[in-house]
Amino acid sequence: MKQAISKWRPLISLVVAVLTIGAPLVMMINGYVLMMQNDLMHPDVLVLIGYLVWGLVGLVGVIAYGIHCYRVGWHGLTVLQRWLFSIYGVIFVLGLLIWLPFLGLSSFDWAEWIIYGSAN
């Protein structure tokens, strides 16, 4: 049974990564498109929520792959695990840049370019 699970583990981790990274990305793209169409229903909230979810997903991914990397070392990771660890790290940093102002720990003025594309 253990051998059957380990055979599917790379596919499962890839599917989970696509879903957890892709769903917020679709929300953010939808929000950006609606902002370009000057929609009055606050599409910037979709972008904000997408980045906040990315921050949480990135945090969980970095912790999970970081623990595994600590145990086996960077060279002990497979190529897929290295890619996913790097991708989760990047989306964690992007999410952290939004979480800090959202929690009131820093000014939101400097992070507006991530959501709106320019400082207002």
Score class of each variant (00 low, 15 high):
residue 3 Q to H: 07
residue 3 Q to T: 13
residue 4 A to C: 08
residue 5 I to C: 11
residue 5 I to S: 12
residue 6 S to M: 12
residue 6 S to D: 12
residue 12 I to Y: 14
residue 15 V to F: 08
residue 18 V to W: 01
residue 18 V to C: 03
residue 20 T to D: 06
residue 25 L to H: 05
residue 28 M to E: 14
residue 28 M to H: 11
residue 30 N to H: 15
residue 30 N to T: 15
residue 32 Y to P: 06
residue 32 Y to W: 15
residue 33 V to K: 15
residue 36 M to N: 15
residue 36 M to I: 10
residue 37 Q to G: 10
residue 38 N to C: 05
residue 40 L to N: 14
residue 42 H to L: 09
residue 45 V to S: 05
residue 47 V to N: 05
residue 48 L to S: 12
residue 49 I to N: 04
residue 50 G to W: 03
residue 51 Y to V: 00
residue 52 L to Q: 04
residue 52 L to H: 01
residue 52 L to S: 03
residue 53 V to E: 07
residue 56 L to K: 00
residue 59 L to I: 07
residue 59 L to Y: 11
residue 60 V to I: 15
residue 62 V to F: 03
residue 63 I to R: 08
residue 68 H to T: 06
residue 68 H to M: 07
residue 68 H to R: 09
residue 70 Y to S: 05
residue 73 G to S: 08
residue 76 G to V: 00
residue 77 L to H: 05
residue 77 L to R: 08
residue 78 T to G: 13
residue 81 Q to D: 12
residue 82 R to C: 13
residue 83 W to L: 12
residue 83 W to Y: 12
residue 83 W to F: 14
residue 84 L to A: 05
residue 85 F to H: 12
residue 88 Y to A: 01
residue 88 Y to W: 00
residue 89 G to F: 00
residue 89 G to W: 00
residue 89 G to Y: 00
residue 90 V to C: 08
residue 93 V to G: 08
residue 93 V to K: 03
residue 99 W to M: 04
residue 101 P to V: 03
residue 101 P to Y: 01
residue 102 F to Q: 02
residue 102 F to A: 03
residue 104 G to K: 02
residue 105 L to K: 02
residue 106 S to I: 03
residue 108 F to V: 10
residue 108 F to D: 13
residue 109 D to P: 04
residue 111 A to L: 07
residue 111 A to N: 12
residue 112 E to Q: 15
residue 113 W to S: 14
residue 115 I to E: 07
residue 116 Y to E: 12
residue 117 G to W: 09
residue 117 G to M: 06
residue 118 S to P: 09
residue 119 A to N: 13
residue 119 A to C: 09
residue 120 N to F: 12
